[in-house]
Design a protein around this nucleic acid. Structure first.
Length: 557
RNA sequence: GCCUUCGUAGUUCAAUGGAUAGAACAGGGCUCUUCUAAGGCCUUAAUGUAGGUUCGAUUCCUACCGAAGGCACCA
């Protein structure tokens, strides 16, 4: 039984003595914002004062008396209008720090122990640019993967790439019109923009593109097939370079080209669910308070919706042991996803219940939304290059063995942190200046704190100072903050919210930097080994935070 | 018009229903003969409006105002 559970149990009993029956698990214990209020606080005396007919403060006093002394807690006091504050003992904090130091997977939890989770993210489309929206999906998906693994689950990373559909036909048409070489993957974005504009504005072009689309589905035109196959290969190879830079490796790639026939078959096999209307096959979402959507269009081609049905079936067939299928996409898909889930509940309910959509917002430019149709996009690669460029000067003055590698690690840290620091689902206003500044509330700030801690540990090793925690030494803000880390990882996986870790990591780094500025660690006194132990615990915790965010942790900066 | 999400310092973001609403950037002032100044310290500044629930509301409910996304053959 940990301290939280001990406190809940004791508080529940104390309340019981006043005739208030409360399940111990429902007793709220918070970390007070102000550490001078202790390590845990509860407002139960305020909450239940009325029931007992006592004043909140009087009830709080009674509860404190009833609690007596509790193992691991050095001080219990009533404060403010009737809060009960608990301060941890030196022993309790030291015990947790020792765990941090000795345990490889410090901060793991059992929230999803034994589960199998398949998570799909990034999802770029061959023949289109890998833009910063894909960077966003990738950063969130990779972090969630690690957070879920940290909760004891086995995670399969999947990437679903749109290699078939009108967007591809637009790009192919654009490549033909502009005479772009099928191996020039970096020109495809331009080709797509050209095709997509023509598709909207020019009816002749539209019908040509629709014809190409049909041919792509049937693979009935040799010339188009060759162009397509080469371009697809080049596109995917270009994506791989970006995944390497970002530190992601996928276990499986799904493609729309394989999901399409599966989806179409499912739709056709359920004529009652997907009814004919104007030559198309639709699902009447309206009957469930949702939107009605087309699954097979009047040309007989499966739409996004049918393909999604198909890919979900493929996931189930390939990974039948999965307990959950998570899909990370932009929130513009959110409404369709509800329709899809409803349709799946009818055609394969056992798969539908495993499906979970995690929507994220857009990465917006201050001028508005990006559009790959008009070619007004920032590609992921160009952004990473610009950031690495910005970091290069500092990196060249750093202690890094290879400044170019450090500059790239800092660049990845900067962009990923900017994405992960705020709650999922909300748009991010991409501030170029801020991303390039690499200071303050940023990924590099956390990386720097980690590198500084590493430098002390290296120096300690050289001068023969061995970390040794003095368990009687009074806890400080920094160590009390480290104590909270396992609770943070648990809350993070509970809410599938990487920003919880990101915010914690920033505060921890700030706490460390502040301490670092006023304390000399290696001061040749008997206190040095204890301080080295604190540094080691901090480094370990920061490293774990950065890992869970999918951000590189260079040990020299 | 309907549905969804969201409105917090000048700006970009935090705050499992809790105490004095936290950071960062921008502005002003300090700080490297001391383990790394990508750092530290000080300083000004905010919950869209009106009700309701609650001991307590940025958080939950209702209305209004404003923003973003969606509303059948794109993804």
């Amino acid at each position: 039984m940990n301290i939280v559970q001990t406190l809940q149990q004791a508080l529940s009993q104390a309340l019981g003595a006043h005739g208030v029956v409360v399940d111990k698990n429902s007793i709220q214990l918070d970390h007070p914002a102000d550490m001078s209020h202790g390590d845990y606080a509860t407002g139960i005396a305020l909450q239940y004062a009325k029931q007992t007919g006592k004043a909140p403060k009087a009830l709080a006093d009674d509860i404190v008396t009833a609690l007596g002394t509790i193992e691991g807690v050095s001080k219990i006091e009533v404060a403010g209008p009737g809060f009960i504050n608990f301060t941890l003992s030196a022993n309790a904090v030291a015990h947790t720090l020792l765990t941090a130091l000795s345990y490889e997977n410090w901060g793991v939890n059992v929230y999803q122990k034994g589960k199998n989770v398949l998570i799909e993210y990034t999802d770029p489309n061959p023949f289109k640019a890998f833009h910063i929206g894909h960077l966003m999906s990738n950063a969130i998906g990779e972090s969630l993967s690690r957070i879920i693994e940290n909760a004891g689950a086995h995670v399969t990373r999947a990437n679903y790439q749109g290699d078939l559909g009108v967007h591809v036909a637009c790009a192919i048409w654009g490549i033909q019109q502009l005479g772009i070489h099928p191996e020039s993957a970096d020109e495809f974005g331009r080709a797509y923009a050209h095709g997509a504009t023509a598709y909207k504005e020019n009816t002749d072009a539209k019908s040509e593109i629709d014809t190409i689309n049909k041919k792509l589905y049937d693979r009935s035109d040799e010339g188009i097939n060759n162009l397509y196959d080469t371009g697809r290969k080049e596109s995917l190879a270009a994506f791989e370079k970006i995944y390497t830079m970002l530190g992601t490796t996928f276990d499986h790639y799904f493609f729309e080209s394989e999901a399409a026939p599966v989806g179409k078959e499912i739709v056709l096999a359920h004529p009652q669910t997907f009814v004919e209307s104007d030559g198309a096959r639709i699902f009447k979402g309206e009957e469930y308070g949702l939107h009605t959507r087309v699954f097979i269009n009047s040309q007989g081609l499966p739409t996004y919706e049918a393909k999604e049905l198909g890919v979900t079936k493929l996931k189930q067939d390939l990974y039948p042991e999965s307990d959950q299928f998570i899909v990370v996409t932009a929130n513009e898909i959110a409404e369709y996803f509800k329709v899809l889930k409803k349709a799946m509940e009818i055609v394969f309910p056992e798969i539908a219940e495993k499906l979970l959509h995690v929507p994220h917002g857009f990465l917006r430019l201050p001028t508005g939304k990006m559009s790959s149709r008009t070619g007004d996009v920032i590609t992921g690669e160009s952004l990473l290059i610009a950031l690495a460029e910005a970091a290069r000067e500092r990196a060249s003055e750093s202690r890094a063995d290879d400044p170019a590698i450090l500059a790239q690690q800092v660049a990845v840290g900067a962009i990923k942190y900017q994405i992960l620091r705020q709650a999922n689902g909300k748009d991010i206003i991409f501030d170029r200046e801020k991303a390039l500044s690499l200071e303050g509330d940023s990924g590099p700030y956390i990386q720097y704190a980690y590198a500084r801690a590493c430098a002390i540990l290296t120096k300690a090793g050289e001068s023969g100072v061995v970390a040794k925690l003095d368990e009687s030494e009074a806890p400080i803000h920094l160590t009390r903050f480290i104590y909270r880390f396992p609770e943070i990882t648990e809350r993070t996986v509970e809410n599938l919210a990487p920003h919880t870790i990101a915010n914690y990591a920033l505060l921890l780094a700030a706490e460390f930097n502040s301490w670092y500025a006023q304390v000399q660690v290696l001061d040749e006194t008997p206190a040095a080994p204890h301080k080295v132990a604190i540094v080691a615990a901090t480094a370990k915790t920061l490293e774990r935070c950065l890992y869970l965010l999918g951000i590189p942790a260079p040990n020299k900066m």
